[in-house]
Amino acid sequence: MIMQLEPILKEAGELLKEGFYGAFKTQYKDKADLVTEYDVLIEKFLMPKLKGAYPNDEIFGEESYKGNTFPKSGIFVDPIDGTTNFVHRLPHVGISVGVWRDGKAVEGGVYNPILDEMYLAQKGSGAFCNGTRLHVSQSTTLQEALLATGFPYTKNSSPMDLGFVLNSMTNLLPLVRDLRRYGAASLDLCLVAKGTFDGFYEINLKPWDVAAGIVMVEEAGGKVTTHEGGAYDMNDRTIIASNGAIHEALVNEIGFYE
């Protein structure tokens, strides 16, 4: 089934490139959350294509879904993950499609058309980038670890969310090799699967941000939980992904979120 995703993502990638190298209109969803006409255009392109490929699955797109909670099964679509990067012409942008059934990630595709990197994964069949199988890193200590994180859009409106960002960095930065903040969670998770990053964590992400990346990490041999170490659910507020070897240490040191 996953092979159906590749041509759909490739075609959608042409639209993303058109916008990235061209002109577009931008507006704010709120104080810090941008949306462009290409976010909407790409999602509208993807919806019928995905419905044709997965006729029995409900599809949830970032720009069209208005609910606050999410089911255990469905297809979760981010038409441009890294919209702020897209607006500023930073090439860390991707189109993300993740398929979940009964609370488990089963298929995922993340495509960065600017760098022409196609990430594909299917439960039980492995994770790949441009046909090369992915494996998580071999780092065993936080001291060796290069971590990725992100800053939630709620940093402007939620003191708790901002506090988690600052506290987790305060806790982790002295213990790890370094931290990176690239601004596209789906691709950050792919880079954990690729072994570039040893771990990733963030707060207040939505299913379309992580649905595809989670299956990448798991199929590359990594682990994904909440910040407390429990199984990740689509309605959870925190996520930690790692190569598995540093996971317990990462959970223990990241701090708390209430």
Rank of each mutant, 00 (worst) to 15 (best):
W100V: 01
A212L: 06
V217P: 07
K31F: 09
R133F: 05
D209R: 08
A121K: 01
E43I: 02
G195N: 09
D81T: 00
F128P: 00
S168G: 15
L41Q: 11
K123E: 14
F24W: 11
L115C: 02
I239K: 03
K29A: 07
E6H: 10
H247R: 09
N252F: 03
I114V: 14
I254G: 06
T154C: 04
P48G: 07
T36Y: 00
K29M: 07
V99W: 03
M234R: 15
I8G: 03
G94W: 00
V110C: 03
G222W: 00
D57R: 03
I239M: 12
Y153L: 13
E218L: 11
A245Q: 12
R180Y: 10
K29N: 08
P91V: 10
N130P: 13
I59L: 12
R101G: 04
V251L: 02
L205P: 01
P79Q: 06
A220D: 00
E18A: 15
I254D: 06
P7L: 11
P91G: 05
T26N: 05
Y28T: 11
L175H: 04
T140K: 11
P91W: 06
M1Q: 11
G124H: 00
I203W: 08
L250A: 05
A245E: 11
Q122E: 15
E62N: 08
Y28G: 09
G221F: 03
L162D: 06
